[in-house]
Nucleic acid binder design. Structure first.
Lengths: 332, 332
DNA sequence: ATGAAAGCGCTAACAC
DNA sequence: GTGTTAGCGCTTTCAT
């Protein structure tokens, strides 16, 4: 019942190939032919069947973006950038939600859903390097994320250690001495939490300060609610501190919110800083000092790298590290 | 070079059909056969070619979600809910960004990209009822949004007029008399802006108050920056008011931020309320009083309705209006 | 600048 | 429970 290319060809009095040429922008065609085809398409209300094209051409024109969630501001802004760049490259993007779940992340690298995209942009958070190396997926994959990895896959990543060190140094320069590391993780795995914590320790070390374990707390997940909760508990426990370094903006914003609620002045009584520079950081009250971790560049680089891999399989794996920049606003 | 189902069948010593059965969860199969197939899949590292399945079955198992942008908290949370519900229904979601652009929204309803999804979930903001009625798309479409429309398509929508009236009444009850309508649009088109403004006027009318045009401003786009800017200009112009009703949370939050920056106390000097109840409303300082407009229900209802339409084409167009609820927090 | 024929890898209908 | 046969609607190659 739905019209096919053959129907269009018949009505226009040309061959299927010519209609196909029309849709694929093949330039050599008489205006006459073109007009007949256009009119046939119009009267039949014809649309190219992309499934047929995909089977025939061996490509889908679609990539998957796999993230833990998309409601989180960081991932929402990442997804926006990814989809937007992809559209410019003529690629569709399907969103896969992993929920940060180990099994769902593994399933992606096993290609459990079947072969339905040309490539995968993947921001894992539950998988370790070994899980990742053991992938059996046979389409191009570009990893995005906080971790520096550098195995069989391309990796587009944040300068976690340097960024966190820079932010910590900034606080130290401003005279802050007792800095809460909110979101830390003491692990050898290259997670964002561990790497940012490493940068924090490094900067303290340079300054000749010791890490006070009382001030290092690791709320999970990294959202406002857990930031608020963790800092509240720290205050309740009687900890003394003069700055809070949230390992992402949500943690920092949640903490700031809770501290204000308890009557502290920011930055008068306490400095609060974040990491990532999501949009809401600029619009908080007061506007949050944070670190731009290069999210848009990451999205663009990752899509472009994947697009290159779609075309060539000669590429050696590379690690791309985004530039970062301190964004000083009002909270420190 | 990539293995096909025929290769698997050959290696397992069964027919293609049996392998197909395996992948489609057909239950009647000896454990023996199943094991042979599994082992063949393993050794060949075989993945189902979804393009071939799609062509053959006439379905893609994918729907498109078309929104102006996905970085905006409202749409990010909507997308999260849509993708999550869709996954439960075994559907993939590709995100289409329209940027609120009239041409790009029209293109979607013309099916310009070809037939690549089974259905479309569409949140238009630039199209009028006429544009929408003139769609030539021949796949199921479910419209989402602020506007109550009710034409050839299903519509899942927010109770704009009632919600805005309820919020305005609430402010009046709390003794606020000069309420800024931030985001209003004086139009006959059923836009969110016009409908919420209509609710605002209605509540004022019930209370015997007149609308003071000075207090109705319509910043665009509906984000924090324009909310901040608009309220700043109002203050600069010397307007006197005791409450701000932001027609979405971003406007309200931006306005609150700007007012705090200028030294006003919220809610002491001024009440501020929003609309939508995005996550950040709860986490602002102070937490924003707003109206839950039923976003998650909308996502769920829309996906389910689309899923129903994928199966049956006997359905008459319906309008589904989400329940709303006042969420009283600290700002009014 | 356009046509003819083959085939992409699967599912569907029906047979056994 | 499993096999056989036909396509699904395009793109591709090669010809003209």
């Amino acid at each position: 019942m739905t019209a096919t290319m053959a129907d269009v060809a018949r009505l226009a009095g040309v061959s299927k190939k010519t209609v196909s040429n029309f849709f694929n922008g093949y330039p050599y065609m008489t205006a006459e032919t073109r007009a007949r085809i256009e009119s046939a398409i119009e009267t039949l209300n014809y649309r190219v069947n992309i499934s047929a094209r995909n089977l025939s051409s061996g490509r889908t024109g679609t990539i998957a973006l796999a993230v833990p969630e998309v409601a989180h501001p960081y991932f929402a802004e990442l997804a926006q950038a990814v989809v937007s760049v992809s559209q410019r490259h003529g690629l569709n993007v399907v969103i896969e939600l992993t929920d940060g779940d180990h099994d769902r992340e593994s399933a992606l690298l096993r290609g459990d859903g079947g072969r339905y995209v040309d490539g995968l942009l993947f921001h894992p958070i539950a998988l370790g390097p070994d899980d990742i190396e053991s992938s059996t997926l046979d389409i191009p994959v570009v990893l995005i994320g906080d971790r520096v990895h550098g195995g069989r896959f391309d990796y587009v990543t944040v300068a976690n250690v340097q960024g966190a060190a820079e932010m910590t140094r900034y606080l130290l320069q401003r005279g802050r001495r007792r800095i809460v590391a909110l979101g830390m993780e003491d692990s050898d795995l290259p997670t964002a939490a561990a790497l940012r914590y490493q940068g924090y320790r490094q900067a303290l070390g340079e300054a000749g300060s010791d890490v006070d374990k009382v001030l290092t707390v690791g709320p999970i997940p990294w959202n406002r609610a857990s930031g608020a909760k963790a800092i509240g508990e720290l205050v309740n426990a009687g900890a003394s501190f003069d700055a809070v370094f949230g390992f992402n903006d949500a943690l920092a914003l949640g903490a700031m919110n809770e501290l204000q609620r308890r009557g502290y002045e920011v930055p008068g009584d306490l400095a609060v800083v974040g990491f990532d520079d999501v949009e809401e950081a600029a619009l908080a009250f007061p506007p949050l000092t944070t670190l731009n971790s290069g999210r848009d560049w990451i999205a663009e680089r990752a899509v472009e790298r994947l697009a290159e891999r779609l075309v060539s399989d000669e590429l050696k794996p590379e690690v791309f590290v985004a530039a970062h920049a301190l964004v000083t606003r009002s909270t420190a």
